[in-house]
Each structure stands twice: as structure tokens, then as C-alpha cells.
Nucleic acid binder design. Sequence first.
DNA 1: CTCTATCGTCGAAGCGCTTCGACGACCCCC
DNA 2: GGGGGTCGTCGAAGCGCTTCGACGATAGAG
Lengths: 337, 337
Amino acid sequence: MPTINDVARAAGVSPSTVSYVLSGRRPISAQTRARVQAAIAELGFHPHAGARALASSKTNVLALVVPLRVDVNVPVIMQFATAVVTAARTHNHDVLLLTKDEGTSGLERVAHSTMVDALIVMDVEKDDVRIPALRRLKQPTVLIGLPGDPSGIVCVDLDFAAAAAETLRHLAWHGHRKIALVGPSPAVYRRGTSYAERFLAGFTEASAELGLETMTHPCEPGQEGVKSCLADIDAELPGVTALVVHNEEALRPLLDQLRATGRRVPEDISVVAVCPRDVALGMPIPLTSVDIPSHDVGGLAVETVMKLLDGRHTESIRLLPPTLVERDSCGSPARQA
Amino acid sequence: MPTINDVARAAGVSPSTVSYVLSGRRPISAQTRARVQAAIAELGFHPHAGARALASSKTNVLALVVPLRVDVNVPVIMQFATAVVTAARTHNHDVLLLTKDEGTSGLERVAHSTMVDALIVMDVEKDDVRIPALRRLKQPTVLIGLPGDPSGIVCVDLDFAAAAAETLRHLAWHGHRKIALVGPSPAVYRRGTSYAERFLAGFTEASAELGLETMTHPCEPGQEGVKSCLADIDAELPGVTALVVHNEEALRPLLDQLRATGRRVPEDISVVAVCPRDVALGMPIPLTSVDIPSHDVGGLAVETVMKLLDGRHTESIRLLPPTLVERDSCGSPARQA
DNA sequence: CTCTATCGTCGAAGCGCTTCGACGACCCCC
DNA sequence: GGGGGTCGTCGAAGCGCTTCGACGATAGAG
């Protein structure tokens, strides 16, 4: 492996000049720059990352902490991860992958040993034990999601409250008045996963504003969970004409169950999903849905991190506005008669 | 951030002694060791990763290259990734996440700049352009999958040929004689993804050995692809009594299609899937399947990398034996009448 | 009781890079 | 035509760690 000294010698300049060519932090004449670049190309020189980190206190590496739990949303997480990697690369950064199960000590390990310049943490919970530790780190951190107390940390996410409102507005516009929310499993609520609560809150508020008759119900995973959830809904809100489904896992069994009981979508009952685009499209009927734009959120997280690294200011909470895409799972209750 | 000098001072020893306590590369008296460890704990010292890498030429970081294409197998890839991270951590290594779309230059970048000690590369194709570059790297590499010419590189994977044989043996034992393989989409074959070919070869060979009447057919994604695939199979192999499905995406639509056309599983037709356990269990009927053990393969990849880093020898191709688990999707054609 | 190993520790030399201060050379302005 | 800038380059000092050689001290061998 050639070093900066080899390049300097080959180009007939001093090592510091090579460094300045590389970083652009001082003016270098065009000729010198050309000679240096030629030498770099010829020798196939790549600066030693460790040496660089040592001298400059910058690693050009981001930590990304993903949940390891396999129970939910695996494709979403993967999309996030690739979005983060791709975005990071456009800013000349790499990504170190950590799993949530290393907990606080994992974060401290990579931060204290200066392996990374900043951290992006997914799957934060309401009273996430990692938050206080993150506040103490010298590296900036961006959370994907919203903890109970976000003070001192920057957060990005989809605006789930607005998403809920959006689904209700859409259904109301179609003429629906009796609408039920099929939520995530109780386990998700128990964990204090903020998106679930924010969606719920948005749903309830918009429902009141729009004067709708609504109810909400979590949904256990599996065919059985869906079956009992639907039964509860029919009991509590007879004549329900539309379902808002904020539960990826339940989507498919729910549609199966509706079909099995002879309720056609959208003729007999309308469905709006909150899920990634490809999930909505992969269903037997293309579903009207509010997209969960993992890619955009991942990109936003990286942009935000870069801002912080540049010392630029940023709002401490950035929520992406939701987009509802109309497809084939929504009709008017008028026609349903 | 305290440095090794701070620790040394606090413990009343020289920095080199601290280093030897940390690395264990020279004998240190029990008292001294205790004092040093106390100082480390008290100061919260973590060695600077860059400095360490510079001085020791070891980063304790592995690169993991994942496909970014979202079209296939996302959960499988995620499982791999977490398995690799988890296994790497048990060997005191971290994982740098790269996407395949950076191609050869991405590999060279991280390798030449000494960001990683070794690489694990997923989703290798038959004539993968990255292979020659990988051979040239000074860092050891482990492929997950099998390229056309694996010489000079270590590969690990599930033994897909044996997996195919296993499915046929199982079906033959149940008394099936007419069996069709529903393969991956043509695009997968076109890309030269080796697992598809190895499975196909194993299927054909075992079919001959067992004297079965079989056929193979790729399957385009989506409901339409499945429909036409099934039609072709019925035309070419009338009276087919069992399906081997090596195509995760097709699994669900295939079962739907069978049900829609009134063929019961397993009464009228048996199905053996090749897929991750949880996919087999998540279907309307728990499927008899050969597991794709992402977790184990990921772990094996890391073990193999560690062996190489230790300078230990290892076979250049390590294939995990398949495991077939019997569930509810297989019956005997005798009963099918 | 000396002679050689081994043990336990230290000092110093780097690893390859960035960055600061210094210093000619040159240009522009009055 | 001298004074003040900017431009372009260099040398040297570190960044925090590992590792090699050295060296007293202790122990075992003869």
C-alpha cells in the first residue's frame, strides 16, 4: 500500500501538499494539483482511514443501530438501512451496522473509541434507556422515531399523526362515517413505540374534528388475531364501512378474512392501509394507502446528521408529511348500500 | 476522552504496560494488572480505534456487502446481516455495511484504505465482476454463494443441490412419482445466481437417480406468473402430484391459485417449499420445507473469516447440509386418488 | 554461589496522516 | 518603488496506540 509520502515523492512535492490537494483546505496551483493527482492515480493511493481518523478526529463513518428483533417490519428496516447507506455514501461516509441488542454499551463503545462521527438510531421507544447515554455522547445523534422526552436529541420520522388524519379525511370525503382503526399488536403499544401512539392520537383527534364515529382496536398477529379483532369491531361499531389498517402483518390475513366472510373490498367495506408502497401493491387488490417512506426518512436522517456534523443548526424534530395514494380499496358507502 | 497516557499516569505505570494489559501479549503481574484495570474503569477509557488501527494494522471491522435490489428476499438478507453482526461481535469485531451497487470500486475503497480486516460478500453471481478484484485484495474474503470460478476465494452457503435431492427423496418416500419444480423467476437464472442453478442441477440429478418423472419451470413474480407457470406444468406433466417450490415470492400466490382452482393441499397436491422457516410457518397451511438457514450461514461466514484472519486453514468451499422439516403440506398420492 | 533464563516493566520509535506556522514569490496600490 | 496582501509550498509537530529492544530482578541449573 503506497503512503502519502510515496505520492509526495513521485510528484516531487511535500506530503503536506498532497494532503492539501486531497482536502482542498489550501490553495494549490493547477500544475501541482495535476501532478499530485497523476501520482495518486498511478500508485493507486488510498489514504489510510485509521491514520486519517487519528490526525483529523474524523472517521467519516456513521453508526446505524437497527433492531434485531425479527418480529416486525423486517423489509422496512432493510429499506431504511440501504437508504441510509446510500445517502451516507453521497456524503462520503460509510456506515457501521450495530444491533439494538448491544444496548447502551454498544453505543458507548463505538462512540468512545471514536469509530464513528455520528449515530442514527432506529426503533426508539418511549422511555428508551439509551436516550440518556446518547445525550452524553460527544457525537451527534439522530433518532428515527420519537422518544417520550426528545429534548437534546434530534429526531426525524414520518408524521404519523398527520397520516392518521389524512386517512380519515380521505374516507370522510368518500362519505364514510363509521370507521375503525386496526392498530398494531398490543405488544407494540406496550413497548411504547411512539409511532403507534402518535397515529392513534392523530386518529382520535381527526375523528373528533371531522365528527366521525370511530373506534380503535389493536390487532394480535396471525389469522386468529385478525378474526377476533374484526369480531370486536363489528360488535362495537355495527355498520362499520371502512377500516384503517396500521399493521403490516395483519393486512394480508385481514383481507383473507374479509373475503372469507363474504365482504367485498371496496364494495362492502373500504380499506386504507398505512404501509410501504410495495406492500400495498403486493396485496390481492392494490390498496389505497399512506406510504411509509423508509427511503425518504433514511435520507432525511442522513441529511440531518450531516447538518449537525457541519455545525449547522437544525430543528430538533423533523416530521415528513404523509402522502396518501388512492388505489382500488376505497369506495363510497353510498354505493355500498 | 482519556488516552492510554492518562491511564498509565493514573496507574503509575508506563503506557506500554497499559497496552500489554489490554492485549495480553506480555506477562504482567497480577497487582499491576489490577491497578491498570482499575484506572481504565475509573477513567472510562476506550482505546482510540483509529490509533489502534494505525499502530497495529488491524481494524477489528468486517465489511459486509449486501444487495440493494429490493426485488428479492429482503427479510433473508436482513437476517443474514444481523446474524453476521451478532457473530462478529462475539469475536470482538464490528461490521461496516456496504451495498452491492458500489460495485468493485466500493470494495477496493474500503480495502485499500484499510477500513476493514476482511470482507463478506453476499449475492454473488456466476461471473461476478467483483471476483477478480476480491482476489487481488490483501484482506481475506468470504463469499456467501458460489461464483462460476471460486478458485482463490472461500465460499460458504447452503448445499442447494443436496436440498433439492432432499425434497425429492421426501416426496418419493411419500409415493410421489410426478413432481414439478417451481423455480425462481427467469431474471434470477439470467443473473447467474448460483443457488438457482445448483438447486436445479441437484433436482435433475436426484430425479434421475430416483427414477422420477419430473419437470422444472421458472416462475415470474405476481399472480399472473404463478397462474401461467401452473398452467404450463399441468400441460407438460399431466397428473402431477407434487410441487417443489424454490421461490419465496411465488409461494403465497401459488397457494392462493391452487385453492382458487379447487386443488387442496395436501389432499390433491403436495407442496414442499425451500424458504426460511418463518415463511413456511406463516402460510395458510404450515408448509413442509427445507429451511434456508440465513442465521447459520451468516454465522458460518463469520467463523470462516475469523479462521482466515487467524491464519488458520479452511476448506475453500463449505456447504451447510440442508434440513427438511415435515409439516402439513405433504401427503401421499395414494390417498389423493 | 555464579551463569543463564524468564519475568515484568519501561522508553522510544514509529504507524500515515493533518494542520499550523513560516516563508519566499508575486501582485496591486498608492 | 516600498508596504501590505494573497498565493503556493514546505517542515515539523503531533494524533494515540503498538511493539521492539533493553534492562533490572528473580529464579532455577550446575
